[in-house]
Design a binder for these strands. Structure first.
Lengths: 195, 195
DNA sequence: TTTAAAAGAACGAACATTCGTTTATCTTTG
DNA sequence: CAAAGATAAACGAATGTTCGTTCTTTTAAA
């Protein structure tokens, strides 16, 4: 009996991400993917039962890595300012470390392929809920519906990330994010939310 | 000579949007589109010279409507608080009036199909630049790089829109946006940006 | 230690569809 | 009648998936 090569599954996933980021979902054909991963198209079907299954598994794997990276050096017991800053830094590092993953996620999340059902009780979500609950109880920040709090806490960050990755710019010069500029935006967010 | 039916061009565009929102870019085939618009596939090629051209024209048309809607009752000479609030309201109304357009835009913008080159000097962009410039000169708001200002001014709004459209939720109950909740978030943004 | 059966991995070829696009023909209208 | 709109039919290429077969490795009997 021949052993299943776990690396191969990862290889297929990563090549799929690369193809999708380069050419969009149209661009991901099983044959192109096979060529990119240096396999026969039929081999892919040993690891994934269909194209749709492949896409879902890719998204799941990407999301798992994200959740792990973003919880590094984070503790729900942290003060709001310290904890939120850690979140911003972790997310910034994640985007730098896995830019293809991020692009893929954004594409997938905005496509109809995503299934909105599973609001699973992930440790990640739990940690976040505890974190904001603590901050409100300690009266570090104003008491707000969680969605509004989240919008204020992360909205500006993700716009900056978009500017950064697109190299896009308001007004002439290309925009590049730095920890300093991030801090500047962060301080304003804290100012908005402070009780 | 037979006259070109302008409505047909619009019909094709709108059906394309509907198909893409439902099924993603994979789902938009010329034959499906023809069926949906009740024409022959070859007829589409009278109005658009290729699939790619069609997609670009759809995006352009969508963007034009957006720019028009979002400038309603807006004047760059307005005070920052009044003007930004008008922007939020306009964008909220736009999303409610053209939800398919919005979904399409989000998909297109996050896909590789978008061409990042044209940072054209649209009247829309000009108005926005003048608006923020005024606000800073009048010392209504803190002096910031335009990207950071933009991130603070619109980031929270778009997160709320996403929650709203996805019916998604932090914590149990589905989230639905209202002008009141929007105002609550808006006041916090103003607090952050006020000089 | 040698050998060969077992079993899953891997593959190339082929499947029926569907793809985007073109062409040749017909229809409508100025 | 002329010119442009509209179409059905057809094009080769590409799609996702399956099939029968071959390779590769493990296992255990000889």
């Amino acid at each position: 009996m021949r052993l299943r090569d776990e690396n191969k599954e990862t290889l297929i996933r990563e090549q799929a991400i690369a193809l999708i980021v380069q050419e969009g979902f149209d661009g991901l054909s099983m044959q192109k993917l096979a060529k990119a991963a240096n396999l026969s198209a039929s081999t892919i079907y040993i690891y994934f039962k269909s194209r749709e299954d492949l896409l879902n598994q890719v998204y799941l794997a990407v999301d798992e890595i994200f959740a792990k990276e973003v919880l590094k050096n984070f503790d729900p017991a942290m003060s709001f300012e310290e904890g939120l800053w850690q979140q911003w830094k972790n997310r910034y590092k994640y985007v730098q470390k896995y830019p293809l993953h991020y692009h893929f996620s954004e594409q997938f999340r905005n496509s109809p392929l995503i299934k909105h059902q599973d609001i699973k009780e992930s440790p990640f979500r739990m940690a976040m809920q505890q974190f904001t609950k603590n901050a409100i109880q300690r009266k570090e920040i104003v008491d707000l519906p969680p969605e509004i709090l989240w919008a204020l806490a992360y909205g500006p960050f993700y716009i900056l990330i978009k500017f950064h990755l697109d190299q896009s710019s308001m007004s002439g010069k290309p925009f590049s994010l730095s920890e300093q500029k991030m801090k500047q935006a962060f301080q304003l967010v804290v100012k908005a939310l402070r009780a």
